[in-house]
Design a protein around this nucleic acid. Structure first.
Length: 418
DNA sequence: TCTGGGGTCCTAGGACCC
DNA sequence: TCTGGGGTCCTAGGACCC
């Protein structure tokens, strides 16, 4: 019997494939979801566009230059989550051991399913056909003995393919592949390895572990060395609890005025704190990131005496940290291109436990609402929103920040479960 | 022509404690 | 007189993933 019972299933160019599914005129054409020829970033590219070198995360103007016939489509973000969920349901039909790692990919362990559905290769073929027939989307699958191998196999299988790595063929399979296919090797690690003449996984495996650790650092080096030797102890498991929650807004290029910073941070803190409260969690460490024109960015963090999940408190702490970061910059008139807020050190926090009134002692905010009052306000806002929608009530003087922002639906897609 | 949004993990120095 | 060893927490930065 085959030991290649770990499957990695990965929808091909997911957002772009959905757009082509929903609008037949887009099929067979190079399309980009998001961005435009004048600005923004491409969120996803169809395989026809990838052939020109267009990839997700690329500035729209550069994508348009690479592919003059590129068609920019605004994403229909509402459609993505339900379609991806239906795909996951299909995967769940062959085994309960499904580990979803993002909206569009998952690991499966089909060791217990072979007596019902056949070999892993037959199961993968069945899944691919069902996803294609019932949902209309192309999906690639890799099957192997370990997660690492299965993930690499699905990448090799793309687009719309299946690759099975039998246990006796693992070393030969890995040998010629580029190190960049390994999970954890990005552009920096790839460049460092290339400087030493290491470009394939086989070459990496023949490099002593101590040397790899020198090149990539102790932890990363040790892990990559082990993976190159085909040692991967990870099991297929359910998702663990989130360790942090954050939100960010790109601002283009704006002068950092009191009003702008306050407005953007209120919005971000409201998102973060709202998600925390929705899951009865709170966190002690508040981190902000400020990005300046030119992509240079700094972070400032503060660990509070107790956990917070209150919009107003989070806004105030974030504001202090952002101004601290800006003041430390040499520029006389600061401009910012992005603000981010995140909370870590998460703990369970039942809605009955009231946050300590941290800010009431703060001389900078005399008379600010005590913790209990803040909780009450937030709970009321949450309740109104639950019934009437997010736009029904808010802290902001204006309903939305006056900065260009991605659709709410897109933010939702990127959120991880808390 | 100027780059989205949401996450995880690692490193390294310093504070602080025993 | 000026020094050991180990551990944890905090902060800032950075690589990487989807």
């Amino acid at each position: 019997m085959s030991g290649a019972t770990i499957l990695h299933a990965d929808l091909d160019a997911f957002y772009a494939s959905v757009e082509q599914l929903l609008d037949p005129r887009l099929r067979g054409r190079p399309i980009a979801v998001g961005g435009s020829a004048r600005g923004g970033v491409v969120l996803a590219a169809s395989y026809e566009a990838k052939a020109y070198g267009v990839v997700g995360g690329m500035p729209g103007w550069r994508a348009a230059r690479l592919c003059p016939s590129l068609l920019f489509v605004p994403g229909r973000f509402r459609e993505y989550q339900p379609l991806a969920d239906r795909v996951m349901d299909v995967l769940g039909d062959v085994t309960p051991a499904v580990e979803r790692i993002s909206i569009d990919e998952a690991f499966l362990d089909v060791a217990g399913s072979t007596h019902l559905f056949g070999t892993p290769a037959q199961i993968a073929t069945l899944l691919r056909r069902r996803v294609r027939d019932e949902i209309g989307l192309p999906i690639s699958v890799g099957a192997a003995r370990t997660k690492h191998l299965a993930k690499i196999a699905s990448q090799v299988a793309k687009p719309d393919g299946l690759v099975v790595v039998e246990p006796d063929a693992e070393r030969a399979f890995l040998e010629p592949l580029p190190v960049g296919l390994m999970w954890g090797v990005g552009p920096v690690a790839r460049a460092r390895l290339a400087e030493r003449g290491i470009t394939t996984i086989g070459e990496l495996a023949r490099t002593p572990s101590s040397a790899v650790e020198q090149i990539l650092g102790r932890a990363v080096g040790a892990r990559m060395s082990a993976l190159s030797h085909n040692e991967d102890p990870r099991q297929v498991a359910g998702a663990g609890r989130a360790r942090s929650v954050g939100a960010q807004s790109a601002l283009g290029r704006q002068r950092a005025t009191r009003e702008l910073v306050r407005e953007v941070l209120s919005h971000l803190a409201d998102r973060v704190a709202g998600r925390l409260r929705a899951k009865d969690r709170a966190g002690r460490t508040v981190t902000v990131r400020v990005r300046f024109p030119g992509m240079r960015s700094v972070t400032r963090s503060l660990t509070l005496p107790g956990p917070v999940a209150t919009t107003l408190t989070l806004t105030e702490v974030a504001e202090q940290l952002v101004w601290q970061a800006i003041r430390e910059q040499p520029r006389a008139e600061p401009e910012v291109s992005l603000l981010a807020v995140s909370v870590s050190g998460l703990v369970p926090q039942s809605s009955l436990q009231l946050e300590l009134p941290l800010a009431t002692d703060d001389p900078r905010h005399p008379g600010s609402a005590p913790g209990a009052a803040r909780w009450a306000v937030d709970r009321s806002v949450d309740a109104v929103r639950a019934r009437f929608g997010n736009g029904a009530v808010g802290y902001l003087p204006t309903a939305m920040p006056r900065v260009r922002t991605v659709p709410e639906e897109f933010r939702r897609l990127a959120e991880h479960d808390l």
